[in-house]
């Protein structure tokens, strides 16, 4: 491989012990993802996609196997070092948004910046504003999540994931709760981030959505069963233009 991989996993396995039952959520997954790739992961429910994403996002630890993230051996990191990795290198977008409900959009986006040692209230605010403007929510910064639509909440979550200039953004079914139009808009945001050089890995059930990615990986029963490149991924901006105009954006 030309460039050193940003994600490199070897024999990655995760088992859950539930009483007498052992669930093999991941069995010996080997995978490399190069910097700047846009990867879609799909597969049947229960095939281990979320388990895989959580391990990539340093939210969960594998049972065995190795994980090299941007040259760092993740297994050897302490809890605090993992926090630092999540803070500086990673952005995570969840299906259920996971925003703090009683704080404004702006404060939600500022959150990762608050946990930096070099936090500076003035700069944080400006950076968060920039991120919200980039996702098209410059007007809604003081709204609380419950005053925003699902699509808008997911944009806030994306703004939050990008505010710390991560190298890798992980999105687990980010469009799972959204309609087609909002889904394509969200994918467009990821494509935009990807064009800036950020590696994006997203999980989706919808083949349509997967066709926006340059690479498709399919999981089944905890194994990668397919891994193929898509030479001509769809472009969200073009697809949106084809859709009937449905009122104002956002």
């Amino acid at each position: 491989m030309a460039a050193p991989a940003i994600v490199s996993v070897r024999a990655l396995a995760k088992t859950y012990q539930m009483g007498d039952v052992t669930v093999q959520a991941l069995r010996k997954v080997d995978l490399d993802i190069a910097p700047g790739e846009f990867v879609a992961i799909s597969g049947a429910s229960g095939s281990g996609k979320s388990t895989f994403m959580n391990i990539l996002g340093c939210l969960d630890a594998p049972t065995s196997g190795s994980y090299l993230l941007d040259g760092t051996e993740v297994e050897s990191l302490s809890r605090d070092e993992l926090s630092l990795v999540r803070n500086r290198k990673l952005g995570f977008v969840f299906q259920s948004f996971n925003l703090l409900s009683r704080t404004t959009a702006l404060e939600n986006v500022e959150l990762p910046l608050l946990y930096r040692k070099d936090a500076d209230p003035g700069k944080n605010r400006a950076k968060a504003m920039d991120a919200l403007t980039a996702v098209g929510l410059g007007e809604r910064v003081h709204h609380h999540p419950n005053q925003l639509s699902g699509g808008q909440q997911q944009r806030v979550a994306i703004a939050r994931s990008m505010v710390n200039d991560p190298v890798l953004i992980l999105a687990d079914e980010p469009t799972g709760n959204l309609d087609t139009r909002s889904s394509i808009e969200i994918i467009g945001l990821f494509q935009g981030l990807n064009e800036k050089g950020i590696t994006v890995v997203l999980v989706t059930h919808e083949p349509d959505i997967a066709s926006y990615a340059g690479r498709l990986i399919v999981f089944r029963d905890g194994n990668v069963i397919r891994d193929e490149r898509n030479a001509a991924p769809l472009r969200a901006s073009e697809e949106l233009a084809k859709l009937k105009p449905a009122g104002k954006l956002g």
Partner: peptide, 16 residues
Amino acid sequence: TREIGIRLAVGAKGRD
């Protein structure tokens, strides 16, 4: 608990 999870996910340390 969920709030704590979100904070940890975006990089809060145990100490925070």
